[in-house]
Design a protein around this nucleic acid. Structure first.
Lengths: 201, 201
DNA sequence: AAATTTTTATTGAACGTTCAATCAATAAAA
DNA sequence: TTTTATTGATTGAACGTTCAATAAAAATTT
C-alpha cells in the first residue's frame, strides 16, 4: 500500500519491532524475518530503509541512547544552577525514566552492551554515551569536592546505576524503577555527606 | 594421538578455548571450528565430550561461576565468626579476585549474562549464583541492622559489584581490580556507618 | 472528471553463505 | 588384536541479501 512519506513511519516501526523481537527471543534469534513480522512488513524492507540488518541494529541502539540522553536533559534543563545534589539527582531520575526501564528497552540495552564489545560501530556509540554520563556526574561533584574524590564518586555512582539496570534487565518482573532510584539517591547522599564542610542538619 | 584418560584434559582445554574465542570475537562469532582451533583439536570433538555446542557453553558458564564461588569461599573460610564488615569485605574481594577479572573471563561472563535472558539453562545457573551472593550479603548485614535496610544494602552493594564488572568488561584496558575493590569497600563502609549504634572513632 | 502515465513502496522467491552436527575412516595406545 | 581417541568431509537447516515483479498512489494528460 504505497503512500508517500512512509520512510519515517517505517523506520520507527522497524526500530520498535527490533526491540520487541530482542525482548522476545534475544539478539541472537532476532532474525530479519521475525523483526519484519513484528512490524507487519516483509523482510526485504529492512535492507531498503537501513541498508541491511546491521544498519537497523545501529539505529535501534542510537535511539535508545538518544532517548536516555533526552530524559536526562529534560529533567536538568529546568534546574538552572541549582545544587549539585539536584543536578545529580536529575541525572539519576533520568536514567530510571519510565520510558527507559520497560522490559524491551532494558533487555535490548543489555544485549547491545554485550554486543558492543566486539562491534566497533556499537562500541563507539556506547563510549560516547558513557563519557557523557561520567563527565556530567564529574562536573557536578567537582563543585563540592576535589578532583580525585569527584572522579571516584562519579565512577562509583555510574557503576551503581549500570548495575541496577543490569540486574533489572534480568529480573523476570523487570526493573523496580522506584526502588532503584531510591537506592541510587541514598548512595548519592552518602557520597555528598562525606565531603560536606557545613553540615546543615 | 589417542592416549587414555584424555577426557578431563580435553574438557578443560575446550572450556578455556571457549573463553579465549569469546574474548577474541564475541559469543555470536565463537563457532565450534574457532573454539576447537584455539584448543588445537578438530570441531567434532566438542560434540563428543559435551554433546554439542550448547553443552560446552553451559559447562563454561558453570566453571566461571564455580571459580567465583570458590574465590569467595576461600577468603571467608578463615574468618570464622569475624565481623560482618570482614565477611562482606571478603565477599567483595572474592568477586574481584585476579582469576575472575581477566579480560577473557570478564567478557565471557558478560556475554553469558546477556545470553541467559533467553536461555533457560543459563538463566538457572545465573539465578543460583545471584541468590547466593544476595543471601550471603543479606545474612551478614542482618547482624548489624534490621531486615529491610539489610535487604536494601545487599541489593545496592550487589548492583555496585555487578556494575563495576560490567564497566570493567567494556573498558579497553580491562577492569581495574584494585580501584573497583576500593570503591566497593568505601560503599560498604558507608552502608555500615548508617547503622552503627556505637560510633567508635 | 476520466483516463493515462509516472513515481513510490513493497513483496517474496531465489541465491550464496555459514553453521552445528554426524559418522565412517583412521591412527595411536593398550 | 582390541580399545580408545580423533579427524574432517558431508549434510541439512537457517540466515541475510538481492532484485524482478507488483500494486497502489500521485501526477499528468485528455
Amino acid at each position: 500500500m504505497p503512500k508517500v512519506g512512509m520512510e519515517p513511519i517505517r523506520r520507527q516501526q522497524l526500530i520498535q519491532a527490533t526491540m520487541a523481537a530482542i525482548d522476545e527471543v534475544g539478539l541472537a534469534d532476532a532474525t530479519v524475518i521475525r523483526i519484519a513480522g513484528h512490524a507487519g512488513v516483509s523482510a526485504g524492507i529492512i535492507s531498503h530503509y537501513f541498508g541491511g540488518k546491521d544498519g537497523l541494529l545501529e539505529a535501534t541502539m542510537r535511539q535508545i541512547l538518544t532517548d536516555l540522553g533526552d530524559a536526562v536533559s529534560a529533567r536538568r534543563r529546568s534546574l538552572g544552577d541549582a545544587s549539585p545534589r539536584a543536578h545529580i539527582g536529575a541525572i539519576i531520575d533520568g536514567n530510571f525514566d519510565r520510558s527507559q526501564v520497560s522490559g524491551p528497552v532494558a533487555k535490548t540495552w543489555l544485549a547491545f552492551w554485550a554486543s558492543s564489545m566486539h562491534k566497533p560501530q556499537l562500541q563507539r556509540l556506547q563510549q560516547v554515551n558513557d563519557r557523557r554520563l561520567y563527565s556530567n556526574l564529574c562536573s557536578q561533584f567537582r563543585r563540592v569536592m576535589p578532583q580525585e574524590p569527584a572522579r571516584r564518586a562519579s565512577h562509583g555512582l555510574a557503576a551503581t546505576i549500570d548495575g541496577l539496570w543490569l540486574r533489572g534487565a534480568l529480573t523476570p518482573d523487570g526493573l523496580d524503577a522506584d526502588g532503584a532510584r531510591r537506592l541510587a539517591h541514598d548512595y548519592l547522599d552518602q557520597l555528598l555527606a562525606n565531603h560536606e564542610s557545613t553540615p546543615v542538619s
